[in-house]
Structures are given as structure tokens and as C-alpha cells.
Simulated scan of single mutants.
Amino acid sequence: MKRTIDDNILAKYFDHTATAAELEETNNWLEEDPENEVLLKQYHQIWTASNAEVKNFEPNVKAAWQQIEPKLQVHKKQPNYLRIAAVAVGVLLISTYLILTNNRPTEYLSFKSEADTQIKTLADGSTITLNSFSLLEYPEEFESDERRIKLIGEAFFDITKNPDKPFIIEANGTEIKVLGTSFNVTARDENVKVSVNSGRVEFKKTEKKKVILEKGDEAIYESKKDTITATAIFDRNVFAYKTKVFEFKNTKIEEVVSTLNKGYKSNIKLEGSNWENYALTTKFENENLFEALGIIAETLDLKVENKDKSYILVKNTVSE
């Protein structure tokens, strides 16, 4: 039968506190079986990593320890230093892993739009509609205690609600923080505008310079003034490129054309001059561009001509 050795003797052997008799017993044990030398190295790695000398403690036996313990037939009535060391190493490794995981830099993926709008669904189910010529940077998975992304350009956000993991957008040095809502962010230059369609949003530059916005509110951060100003939404069509809902109330035709061009990514033009007396009151809900132009033409007595990939609005009668 293979002779065993007390793990407490091995602990003293590693700690250079073994007596002469214990050193002799350890050396004899090593000489008896080459496998014992392998076991000694394994224990020494555990002992070195933990550097622990905890006494009078009986931890749960780890799976790795269970594979080695039968070979040594360790006595269980005495304080078990190496078993304690094995558990300490496990705790140390887990703690180190968590620290490294939480502090490692987040890797971001890129998603961009060019002439047309693009829609991106994130890992949490949130959907983002990028307006033309915009860039979104986002992680493949939201592994930390927040959902953080970056935006250059303009986008409409429909955020999945998660009170335990706020959604944060970085845009030109500002932050927009939400729990679950829909809103628009415009960050095409050094200024940033946030317009809220539903829910509540925190918009800030610093902790002392922030505002809370609710449905129907918007705020603008002006870089040169370093100020954030909140107001009611001025342009009711700010969400139109996403929703395809356009609303006009006695709106001058020049502004109507500009809004539709942005929303449909089209090229509508007015022929000639003297359009100041033409204004439109109507609402488009999911009409395509051709249908919208037909309504405008009928309402204002105009013709629509298609030339070189452009739509031209032409007066039927000469203005006085």
C-alpha cells in the first residue's frame, strides 16, 4: 500500500518551517514514487499563489482538490493548510477575473448610414434609426451595468426598458441617459439637440449642467456658450424621417419642400419665384413621396414634373 503524507507537513515544507524529522519524511515520500514529485509541484503552485496561512477553517473541497486528495489520503482531523490554500486560490482567480472583466476597455462596432436612413437593432432589443450620413458605435453585448453607445450625426432611438441598466448615448462631449423611451438626437456639429417623443431623458454636459426632458420637450447644448437650454419641441416634424408622419399648419411651401426632402431623402424643387403666398395645412401619415406630392399639387393647384431624378412643383397659373 502506498505510504501517505500529512498535508500540514507539506505546508511547513513550503514555508521553510518544517523540522528535521518532517524534512526527512518529505524527502522519503518523494523518493518512493515519481508521481509524488508531480503532486508536490501542483501543491506548491497552489501554495505560492495563495500565500495563505489561515488556521482552524474547514472549507468546501474544490473539484480540483478532490482529484488530488485521494492520492495523498490527507488526515482531516488536523488544520488543513493546503486545502485552505486551494480555496483561497479559487477565490483569488475569480476575483481577478471579475476585476479584469469589469475594467477592460469596451470594444465598439461601427454602423453607418449614407444617403438613406438605416435601422440597427442592438443586443438588448433597442432599435436605432440613423438619419443620413450618421455613425453609430456600439458594443456587441452590453456586459456592464449600463448600455453605452456613441453617436455622430442624427438618430431616432426606441430604447428597451431596463431600470437596472440605463442606456447612455455619448454625443460631442454630452451624455443622454434613459431607462426606456423614444427620442431623437442631432449631433452633426459641435452642438447637440435632444427631442423626446416619449418617456423621460436626462441630458447633461456635466453633473452641474444637466436637464430632465419629458415627452414634447427638447434641449440644445451650444458648445460656444457651453450651455444647455430646454424648450418645447419647435419643429413638429423632427421625428418624420423615422415615423413618416408629417404635419403642416399654414406652413410656407419652401419649408414644406425642405422638410419632405429631409424626410424622404428626395430632391423636390420649386420652379420659378414668388412662392411667398403658397402655404400648406395638412398631415401625411405613411404616404409615399408620390402620394404626398399629389396631395400638395391638388391642394395648391400645382403640377408635378419629373426631371433628372428631381420632382419639380410648377404653378398652374401665373401669380399676380
Rank of each mutant, 00 (worst) to 15 (best):
H44S: 12
E170W: 02
S198E: 13
F183K: 06
K215S: 13
T101W: 10
F246W: 06
P139G: 01
I220R: 07
V245C: 08
E154P: 04
L135C: 04
T174L: 01
N162Q: 09
L130K: 02
D164L: 07
S258Y: 06
L289V: 06
D235E: 13
P163D: 00
N250L: 09
P70E: 01
E305P: 07
D158V: 14
K150N: 09
L293C: 13
V194L: 04
P70M: 00
V256W: 01
E202Y: 03
D7F: 04
T229F: 09
P163G: 00
D33E: 13
D158G: 04
F57W: 15
E25G: 01
S144G: 08
N103Y: 14
Q67P: 13
N288I: 05
V54S: 08
A20W: 03
T186D: 06
P166F: 01
I312D: 01
T121L: 06
N184V: 10
T181F: 09
P79N: 09
F111M: 05
S50H: 05
V185W: 00
F133W: 11
K209A: 11
D116N: 12
E190C: 12
P59T: 02
K55V: 15
I99S: 09
Y138K: 03
A64G: 14
L10E: 02
N131L: 08
Y264M: 03
T206K: 05
I84D: 01
I128H: 11
I68T: 10
L72N: 06
D164T: 05
F157V: 02
L280F: 10
L260Q: 06
K177Q: 07
S319L: 14
I168W: 00
A187P: 03
I46L: 12
T121A: 08
E170K: 09
S50L: 03
K77F: 08
L302Y: 01
K225S: 14
D308N: 15
W275I: 07
K269D: 03
F167G: 03
S310E: 12
N316F: 06
E255Y: 10
A240W: 02
K177P: 00
Q42V: 14
T229M: 07
E305H: 12
G272K: 08
D217T: 12
S50G: 14
A219F: 02
M1G: 11
L109R: 07
S144K: 15
L98A: 04
N191I: 03
L82D: 02
V185E: 00
E37I: 12
Y241I: 05
L289I: 10
N162D: 13
E276G: 07
N60T: 11
L109E: 09
Q118G: 04
L293Y: 10
H16F: 07
I9F: 03
A123D: 13
Y278L: 08
T160N: 13
S319K: 15
E218H: 10
G263S: 01
E291A: 12
S198Q: 14
T17Y: 10
E53D: 12
Y81V: 11
I233Q: 04
K252V: 07
G180N: 08
P70L: 00
S198M: 14
M1C: 09
S113P: 09
D6L: 05
A219V: 00
